[in-house]
Each structure stands twice: as C-alpha cells, then as structure tokens.
Write a protein that binds this DNA or RNA. Sequence first.
DNA 1: CTCTCGTATTTCGTATACGAAATGCAAAAT
DNA 2: ATTTTGCATTTCGTATACGAAATACGAGAG
Lengths: 222, 222
Amino acid sequence: MDSVKPKRTLVEETYNILIDAICSGELPPGERLNQDEIAAKLNVSRQPVNSAISILKANGLVEDTGRRSVVVCSFDSGLFRSIFEYRMVIEPFAVRLAGRNLAVADRQQADKVLRAGDKAFKSGKLSDLLQADMQFHEMIYGWSCNHVIQASMKTNWHHIRRSMAEVLRGPDAVLQIWDEHSEIVDCLFKRDTEKASQVMEHHINGAYEAIAEAISAPEKSS
Amino acid sequence: MDSVKPKRTLVEETYNILIDAICSGELPPGERLNQDEIAAKLNVSRQPVNSAISILKANGLVEDTGRRSVVVCSFDSGLFRSIFEYRMVIEPFAVRLAGRNLAVADRQQADKVLRAGDKAFKSGKLSDLLQADMQFHEMIYGWSCNHVIQASMKTNWHHIRRSMAEVLRGPDAVLQIWDEHSEIVDCLFKRDTEKASQVMEHHINGAYEAIAEAISAPEKSS
DNA sequence: CTCTCGTATTTCGTATACGAAATGCAAAAT
DNA sequence: ATTTTGCATTTCGTATACGAAATACGAGAG
C-alpha cells in the first residue's frame, strides 16, 4: 500500500501559478500584481496570494514600488549577461562532475531526452525546443550530484524562460544548437569528460550569441 | 530633504530573525518551528510568521515533515561538499571578473575590510573572523558585477554560517587563512588577475580542508 | 500491566475582518 | 483652463476566527 498524496498547500499552488505566469510572459515586466484580482481568479482568499507574493519578492521575481503594489521585475539585460557568463563556467563544470559520477548517469534517460529534443527541433516550435533544452541541461545538473548547481540553475532557468518569452514574440529565430547535446552525451559515455566539457562550453557560448542577437535585433524586423 | 525610511514589513522582519536563528545554530537542525510560540516571542500575530516560514520552506532552510510541523533542515555533509566544490570554481571566476571590471573595485573599501579581518584574526574570536571572511568574499562578488554569483553565494553563506556554528561548539580550530586575502587584493590591483584567481582557488581549497577536518574530527575531543 | 481506541487539545492552513496608507476623482480656487 | 485640495474608494498588511488534521492522553479490554 502506498502513502497518500502529499497535499500541496494553496500557497505553493499559487506560487507555482504566479511564477509560471511571470516566466511565460503572461505577466510582463512592470505588471502590477493585484492581490484581490489574483485571489478571485484562482478562487482562493487573499491570504495565500499574499504569502506567495512574499516568496516571489524574496526571490527577486517581483519588487515592491514603495507604494502599495508590487510589480514584476523589469528584465535587466545585465542579468541576462550575468546568467550566460555564469553558465559559461558552471555548465562545463557540471559536465566534468558528471563525468566523475558516471555511475549515476542513465543512458536510457539520456536517449529519451535527446529524442524529445529532436522531435521538438523538427516540430519547429521554439517553446517546445526550449522546454527540451532545459530538460537536457537539468539532466546534466542531476548527474553532477551537486545540489548548489541544481538550485542556482533552477532560478536562472526562470529568467531564461522569461527572456525567451520576449524572443518568441519576435521572428522565429531557429536555434541550431540541438546536435551538440548528443555529442556531449556521447563524449561523456565514452569517458572523454574533458571533450564533453569543452563541447558544453562551446554550446553555451553559441546559445548566448544566438539569443543575444535575437534579443537585440528584433526591432529590425518589425 | 530625504525620503522617509522604507518601513520593513513584519514578514521580512520575522524572516530575517528566523534565518538568523537558524544560521547561528540557535535553532538547530531538526528543531520544530511552532508558529504560536514564535509569534508570541516576537510579539506579532501568527500570520507574518506563517508567511516567513513559507519563504524559508521555498528556500530550503526548513522542510515540512508531512505531519503538522516544519523542522529546520538537517545539515547534510553532501551539501557542504557541494558548496565547496562549487566555490572552488566560482570564487576564482569571480576574481577573474573583478580583474576585468577593476574600475568598480575600491582600494579603500578593500583596506577597510582587510583591516577588519586582521583585527578579528587577532581577537581570536572565530565568529568575528567568519563575519570578516564573509565580508571579504562578498566584496569580491560585488566587484565581479555578476548578480548570479552574488545571489547564489548569499544562499551558500547561510549554509556555511550554519555549519560553522557546529564547528564553533568543538575545539577552537583557528583557521590560518586570512593572509591570503590581502595577497588576492594585491594581485588584483597589480593587474595580475590570473595570479589572484589562482590564490583564490588555493584559498578555498585550504578553507575546505580546514573546515572539513574540524567538522569530521570534533568527536575526538569530547 | 500492556495495548488499543476514543476523545480532548494542539497546531496548522485558510478565510474573513479591520485599520492605515495610497490612489482616484471631482469640486473649489486661482 | 489648470491646479489644488478634501473625500470616497481601493489595496495592502496584519490580526483574528474557524475548521480540519495531527497529536496527546486516559480509560477500558485483554
């Protein structure tokens, strides 16, 4: 007999819904969060909404204006640069750790994730590709067995998703980055950790340039 | 005329007090957090306490037991390893970034922090030394101008403080690490960023070994 | 005496209530 | 017409209320 479902609280539910709305762009930067409104929309009282917003505030997704409302943080291009600067170091490092802990790496899991990525790539839907991309990288973080990397990147992916939501409004810049994923996995399982790490560094660098271009250039097309 | 003080909410106050109590060891791992009790002690209602605990939960400082109470997370030695594994890469990186942004680096600030460290070192109080150590490293994070590094390390220092609170109960293991700090600053301002980064890597490695020893060995003395 | 179960008490999550500050608006003043 | 000012309304933070689930505890069965 299995233990009963660990009931989620309304605070957690509300938090997840809000963070999703922010990262998907449904709540754009600068948008004011009205507690009554949100509470009504989610069919809960204002209290869980208030708590959820406190968490968002502590995590830097929203900021209060000093007045009586909190707003979704503006998307800072400096933050974007920080994230990729950071990933350029952390992602190759995660690969090296994964190489050391190869016992925890699961080839079947890798194949599944890679297949999902191929499918998303062929479908051409950038949002699907983003989802698959995130899953691939989170798999690597898991293999690294380093909880700090996992936690910090979880936060970062929120911001990445948020910035990508902006990109998605622009022309569909197809990112030609998927094939490097399978190369990384191959190198890892061939025990060539150093090569895998190098490919990852190149991969992040390429992703940054592609996205930075898509972000800075969209005005040209409109 | 200056603008009025931005009043802190009771939720924030409560959160800060709780996180401080956890990191100082006043609330040891496994301790149950009773909302009524905390509310009474802080002279607030249960509501801000409840919200503050939600934030702690989201940030992994406390966990709920599935029952009716949340407890302070047990201190995982794996997490400790993760943090120093991570710092071994991130701290030298932060130094390299600081070297590039040397314009923001403030020699006077550095001297002040270094002097405070010397004083704490001579006083022999490990808690003061820890405080000064944290300030030194946070100065470097600031110079790196990378917000992701700052944010992730802020969380990590909570855990470091928490683990050090354990160490402090044991024999006073004096950590002979302070002089490396001034060496790092010197190299930086001499524009020898690479050397500074290397010293930082060595520094973190030394700190890890010293602390790991102090943590694993305290039983011997009791 | 030990175990089991029913009941009282504690404790939490959430809803509602309430006061204070911010905002909107319209009438009065220039 | 534009600005100022006082009042009504909105909105938030916090306190209190309430029901449900967890725990403690004692009485009865074995």
